[in-house]
């Protein structure tokens, strides 16, 4: 029985087209935008372009805020599927940066009181943005191949630490605001020329493993890093996410296509639900590869080696 719902919160950054293509139900979160108040999160640039949005965000970051779908919204969403007798796998944005999983957990409990036989599986992606979205694409493909609810749930839990991020976040002030980074945050607003290279860690955040001076050096390090960690690239869809770094993402896409010959490389936008918390400086590729070590020691050693070689 593979007729189950794959659901995700707004942190997955799958465009409307991809949501449809892979039949993934997205539950909207909330955005607070200057002059607009509380609006539902969106994954389409309609009222504002990507450039406008991130340029304005950079100017007044404190005027922006996000919130996950609340308890009732989760309850309503779950109930609508459960009523139809559908099982639900709901994957949430990393619990390290959002309360989405907490709300979903409480909602699930409430729904189970009314529908004791309902099947609702909650999975913490430990990822965000397109890294999280890519996980859902893999799940959807498995579902279409006939894998069961249990098999897909099991796959996600066992393999989530194989979803890599290879890229940079060159404006860390937004991450610092979230309290993740201990370094004085003022500095990170002005990290001109330096590309901090980050990978997902086991805690559901990204950790800076090294820094490259300049984009050219960074590309060289990243290509080597992907090569050392990716598995079966020719069978993969690779996502490249960028908040406001489109030209760099295009360069990166071309390099990845030439070197790894994957099935396809998609440049994805990071929409406001994640973008407000990441800021304009993200440019990273997401792919499946070797499991990421719990303390990132393997990955750190690789990055350090490649940075030394790039000098």
């Amino acid at each position: 029985m593979n007729d189950f719902i794959l659901m995700a919160d707004a942190g997955c950054d799958l465009s409307a087209k991809l949501q449809e293509q892979y039949d993934i139900k997205v539950i909207n979160g909330h955005l607070v935008l200057p002059g607009k108040g509380d609006v539902p999160s969106f994954m389409k640039w309609e009222d504002v372009t990507r450039e406008q949005f991130y340029t304005e965000l950079k100017k007044n970051p404190s005027d922006y805020a996000t919130a996950p779908a609340n308890l009732t919204e989760y309850e309503n969403a779950f109930t609508s599927f459960v009523k139809e007798g559908k099982a639900v796998i709901c994957v949430t944005i990393s619990s390290a940066i959002s309360g989405s999983l907490d709300f979903a957990t409480a909602a699930r409990k409430n729904v189970l009181q009314n529908y004791p036989d309902a099947k609702i599986e909650l999975i913490d992606s430990l990822r965000f943005g397109p890294g999280f979205g890519l996980m859902l694409v893999h799940a959807s493909i498995l579902r279409s191949e006939g894998k069961t609810f249990e098999e897909v749930s099991d796959y996600l839990v066992k393999n989530r630490n194989r979803f890599h991020q290879a890229g940079w976040l060159d404006d860390l002030s937004f991450v610092a605001k979230k309290g993740r980074i201990t370094h004085p945050k003022a500095f990170f607003g002005t990290l001109a020329g330096i590309k901090p290279i980050g990978e997902f860690d086991s805690g559901g955040l990204t950790t800076v493993l090294g820094k490259a001076k300049g984009a050219k050096a960074a590309y060289a390090v990243l290509m080597k890093y992907i090569e050392a960690t990716i598995e079966d690239p020719e069978d993969q869809y690779i996502f490249i996410a960028q908040t406001n770094r489109y030209p760099q993402a295009e360069v990166y896409k071309k390099m990845i296509e030439e070197k790894f010959k994957p099935k396809a490389v998609f440049i994805n936008d990071v929409f406001p639900f994640c973008g407000i918390n990441i800021g304009p400086g993200l440019m990273a590729a997401y792919y499946m590869g070797k499991p990421i070590s719990d303390d990132l020691s393997t990955e750190r050693a690789l990055i350090e080696k490649f940075i030394a070689e790039a000098k």
Partner: peptide, 8 residues
Amino acid sequence: MAMDIPDS
């Protein structure tokens, strides 16, 4: 200073 990795 910018190249420092305080988390390391």
